[in-house]
């Protein structure tokens, strides 16, 4: 039996760097928008940074929020339009550094939105500065000798914080690497969609992603590095499963 595959209409080929994980996540979100039939009733709040590329990368109504504030903008959208599908799309610097207050408080209120955060352990768009997710010892343009966590604090695990401190509907961390990880991630994203569509409440999916440009690696090297060195710290899997789900 032939399986017919087509590219989802809700997303366009985006302008990310070669080997970047953003494009894969965007594609998976586009597939889910179609599969759940919400591509024409979706409102998106994107952040500032590489997520800016969604301005042309996704064919949905969208607001580019001030840096860090996407969860607050999405809150406004959600309350104004209860029947729409609402999600945020940000990087780790956006959602966890400058926007940690808005990110945590949307989770705290259990807003019925999906929050997708790409964790590539640095500020990508501005050229690879340290973020709160930068790994210990990782060299960035603002930690040139490697991140010294005795001075900067240790890499932050916001999904775990949200899952254990508040009462969200669903929290998971996936990864864009090989087909196995990508299929698993698609499952997490589907759960996030379903949590919102069933009015279960807030869901967050953090997505570990490669950043070959700023990591100074070739795409395959970056993927290997992510799986061997980053994923063991940022555990992949469901951190808070949905109630009643298997």
């Amino acid at each position: 039996m032939a399986i017919e595959k087509h590219a989802p209409q809700a997303v366009n080929p985006a302008m990310f760097c070669a080997g970047c994980g953003h494009g894969v996540l965007l594609r998976l979100i586009g597939e889910c928008l179609e599969e759940y039939g919400v591509e024409k009733k979706t409102l998106v709040a994107i952040g500032v940074g590489c997520s800016c590329h969604l301005k042309t990368g996704i064919n949905c109504d969208l607001i580019q929020s001030p840096h860090g504030r996407a969860a607050a903008v999405a809150t406004g959208m959600r309350r104004a339009e209860p029947d729409m599908f609402v999600f945020t799309y940000q990087g780790d610097g956006d959602a966890y550094n400058i926007g940690i207050a808005e990110t945590l408080n949307a989770a705290y209120r259990n807003e019925n939105i999906c929050v997708f955060t790409v964790n590539n352990t640095n500020f990508g768009m501005t050229g690879g500065q340290m973020s709160w997710c930068t790994m210990p010892g990782q060299k960035t343009t603002t930690s040139p000798s490697g991140r010294d966590i005795s001075i900067t604090g240790a890499p932050i695990k916001v999904p775990e914080l949200i899952a254990t401190s508040f009462a969200p509907a669903y929290v998971a961390r996936g990864c864009v690497a090989g087909p196995k990880e990508i299929n698993q991630l698609k499952g997490f994203i589907k759960n996030a969609f379903e949590a919102q569509l069933n009015h279960e409440g807030y869901s967050m999916v953090e997505v570990l992603s490669t950043c070959p440009t700023n990591w100074g690696m070739k795409p395959l090297q970056a993927q290997k590095h992510m799986l061997e060195n980053v994923a063991p710290y940022y555990t992949i899997g469901e951190i808070k499963p949905r109630k009643g789900a298997n």
């Binding site: 709040a45 001030p66 607050a72 903008v73 809150t75 406004g76 309350r79 104004a80 808005e102 408080n105």
Partner: peptide, 25 residues
Amino acid sequence: TFIQSESELAAINIVMGVSACGRRV
């Protein structure tokens, strides 16, 4: 809808989200 937001920053960004939907806020 009444929302007591965590800060004035969040409040104005919630306002932005509502306004983008063409609703009075």
